[in-house]
Design a protein around this nucleic acid. Structure first.
Lengths: 156, 156
DNA sequence: ACGATTGTTGACAGACTTACTCGACTTTAG
DNA sequence: CTAAAGTCGAGTAAGTCTGTCAACAATCGT
């Protein structure tokens, strides 16, 4: 016997990427159809570090969720109606695979541990239920639920 | 605009702790009622690093899932019938909170970002469905599903 | 009494991830 | 010309994950 270590709080987590990215999408949903918003303004209003948000917007653009306009008075806007954009798409773009265990994305043959076989079914069910829940919400849903204090302008 | 970085594969993950710990519990279930098993033997048969497994067994013992016997011919055994031990208990003991986002474990008041409010409902539903799935399996279920090749003795 | 085995505690290391920041240069559009 | 986004490449501070190593105590069978 040797030792053990304190446990942090949680596995299966969503990082700040998902959180910040969703905040940006909600802010964009708030301005949908009213022209592009600049990264700096989104960052200011949603309390996200600007240069970090920049990376996230690039990710979202490459995933086709956001369109960007260069030049003065340019900025970012939603590529589609927020009611047609699921939270699932956003989270997958921002966070990557939803697999709770890394080996779940690989075929069972490549998993060299027959000792964990019984587990595969469990984690697959969890992944599916997680996906289904995320897919059942749209960006518009989140936008609609947000408190008015935040929907107002420039709450610092 | 600045840059962004390659994304790894996945958030919301279960680490090797959960995997290894479950393997150990399955092995113990295989010997349930036949006296204690030593850490070294479990490690050998389930291909888990021995000293790491040691920590995990300590964690499982403190959570009341495993009983340990000191002295020669000592070892570890399941504290209860594997059919009465849920995978949920094991994973919570091994991995900690099941919250997909850290702030979910804190009360909404303490969450100082009203910008993420709409998200709380989503992540809570995911946590609940994950818990329900894990709670619906027992260690005995996993043990029963395991291929015979593994259930045999000393496959190296 | 001896030896095998677990219990407890503390330190540490290497690889990776997360959350960022900074700088330099390019492209687009008013 | 300038304001904005696009692209590329570095780097950092902190934390986590997966372990290893060492010392010492407690328990039990022989």
């Amino acid at each position: 016997m040797r030792r053990f270590r304190r446990r942090g709080q949680g596995q299966m987590r969503c990082s700040t990427r998902g959180d910040y990215g969703l905040r940006a999408l909600i802010e964009l949903a708030d301005h949908y159809g009213q022209g592009p918003l600049q990264c700096s303004e989104i960052a200011l209003r949603r309390h996200v570090p600007e240069q970090y948000l920049d990376q996230l917007l690039t990710t979202l653009r490459k995933a086709g969720l956001v369109r960007s306009q260069r030049g003065p008075a340019g900025g970012h806007e939603l590529a589609r109606d927020p009611a047609e954009m699921s939270v699932y798409e956003a989270i997958v773009a921002l966070e990557g695979s939803l697999s709770p265990v890394t080996w779940l994305d690989e075929p069972p043959e490549r998993t060299d541990h027959p000792h964990q076989c019984g587990q595969r079914e469990i984690w697959e069910r969890i992944r599916e239920s997680t996906s289904a829940i995320l897919a059942s919400y749209t960006i518009a849903d989140l936008h609609a639920k947000e408190p008015q204090a935040v929907a107002g302008r420039y709450q610092i």
